[in-house]
Design a protein around this nucleic acid. Sequence first.
DNA 1: AATCCGGGGGA
DNA 2: TCCCCAGGATT
Length: 305
Amino acid sequence: MSHRRLHRLLLAWYGRCGRAHLPWRKTRDPYRVLVSEFMLQQTQVDRALLAFEAFVQRFPSLESLATASTADVVRMWKGLGYNARAVRLKLLARTLMERFGGAVPSDEASLRSLPGVGPYTAAAVRAFAFDLDDAAIDTNVRRVVHRWLYGLEHPPSASARTLDADARALVPKGRGHAWNSGLMDLGAAICTARAPKCSICPIRTACAAAPIDAASLDAARRRHPRRRAPQEIVPFERSTRYVRGRIVDRLRALPPGKRVSLLDLHRELEPQLGERSIGEFGIVVESLVRDGLVAKSGAGLALRD
DNA sequence: AATCCGGGGGA
DNA sequence: TCCCCAGGATT
């Protein structure tokens, strides 16, 4: 089945309104694409923008990242969250230098073998660095495709598998880069999860869901609630995530070469952490050690080298 | 299949 | 203030 009308509408809109000026869209350098995709997995474009510029300036090449210390990479990751990804990105760089001759592969199997690269990132690298006709499918893309082809996504009319197959079939031959870029921009700016702007959508005349009324979308969402884990009862400040964040932030600020004892760290962070036993604190530190973020020695704690 | 992993923006 | 956000690894 052909989707020529969809292709024409979205690609024309991307040409007019797309964010082709984003630094990771102006380049085809696979290393930069990889860095941007690692950041964009977890962060909005506006925030990733600043971090990206600083990161590629500090680590301008795969080789420079591969030879950098994990500590320096984690320091450059400040503000982005999910710090284990900084560790994986650094490990990925070393893997590429050692096993792939310093080049980013374009085949899916090789990409998927790399730390931190799953189905989405592998496809994104193929589309954005190599302009291959692959579909980088995240939840935003699934939502957009569902609306186009099946109508409102509450309740779902198609499985994730079906949507993935549809999304792949939609990629116009030879236009992988622009198509994926346009799809993401549409999902971020117009075809949003809540309050989509159908009235200004370039696809509205070819969309099964348009026009979506914000109030009825909200009502449909409430009628079909997504299954949720038992609600987190403790305040965020009591959560492990918060403690981990405070610890890593404190270790980021530690002068290179310096270390801090568990007891001193516990005492320093006490004002932010409230009453939390040293034992409980130590368990959180252990989780950071397991994640490769923190190094523990007789001299104390620091970001891992 | 379910859970963990941050930090921020917007309703 | 509360709700929501997203891919990958682990178990």
